[in-house]
Nucleic acid binder design. Structure first.
Length: 259
DNA sequence: TACCAGGACCTCG
DNA sequence: CGAGGTCATGGT
């Protein structure tokens, strides 16, 4: 898998694969200075959520009526992160109330219209657009990509708040308290409970984040439990009573990332 | 062709 | 609060 990232204003293409030793990261085209290796490893840890202690999850899961199969069935599976706050927020907004196929189409159009790219050997790699770039465009620019007026306003609005410096990932992380972070995110137009929870889960890696209204989650539970129809919010609340034990922060030392 | 999709916001009671 | 309507458009 290839991934283009930007560190210290420099574009860096990563080639990432798994080996028996761990995750192997290579720089196929532009070997950067050694000094940047640590930053790349740090990015990978965040992205792959490598700091989360799965053993803690497994202990709770083994004794849970819904999750008991997970330690074996999905051994090693983690929640892939979205390290960039603007990308996480934008992606969540794009995915609000539409099917994922179309959401991916919108994301691709946004990236190919406003994102930076690097072309090597006739292959183009893209970066997600920056909030700075999006803060300077108009609703009409996104309407052309078939964003709804509402979504265009939301995303540009978020970009403007971030460009003003009033919203940063660092400041949110500093708050720590789940409800405090949720409240500050939900003050922003376009961010409701689902989006706030989704971003806390995918970007901030907050252990208490739980998008209980997520349709994907409902379908997953239906399929996992072999239900005739999707569980209601109340059903899920009952299932999730014991999952609150997972809401305490528990980090491991990172596993090895070879570069 | 209906109905649904990884919701949010607004109004009204 | 909580229910109900509105927005808005491609997928299946």
């Amino acid at each position: 898998m290839y991934k283009l990232i930007k560190l210290n204003d420099a574009l860096i293409l990563l080639k990432i694969r798994s080996t028996s030793q761990g995750i192997l990261v290579e720089f196929p085209f532009n070997p950067p200075s050694i000094s940047i290796h640590e930053e790349v490893a740090s990015y990978i840890w965040q992205w792959f959520d490598l700091r989360t202690d799965l053993n803690h999850f497994y202990e709770v899961a083994r004794q849970d009526a819904v999750l008991y199969q997970f330690p074996q069935k999905y051994y090693g599976l983690r929640i892939m992160g979205i390290p960039d706050l603007f990308e996480a927020l934008s992606w969540a907004i794009m995915g609000q109330q539409i099917n994922l196929t179309f959401a991916y189409t919108l994301k691709r159009r946004l990236i190919e219209c406003f994102g930076e790219s690097l072309t090597i050997n006739h292959h183009t790699y893209w970066l997600f657009p920056t909030y700075k770039k999006i803060s300077a465009i108009d609703v009409e620019d996104l309407r052309k990509l078939q964003f709804t007026t509402r979504k265009a306003e939301y995303i540009i609005g978020v970009a403007k708040i971030m460009a003003s410096g009033e919203l940063t990932k660092e400041a949110l992380l500093k708050k720590q308290d789940y409800h405090l972070i949720q409240k500050s995110l939900m003050q922003i137009r376009g961010i409701g409970t689902w989006t706030a929870d989704y971003v806390m889960m995918k970007c901030l890696h907050h252990p208490s984040a739980f998008p209980i209204a997520d349709v994907g989650l409902h379908n997953a539970l239906k399929s996992h439990l072999g239900l005739a129809c999707k569980p209601t919010i109340d059903d899920i609340k009952k299932m999730a009573i014991n999952w609150k034990k997972l809401g305490s922060i528990c980090y491991l030392l990172p596993m090895e990332v070879t570069i």
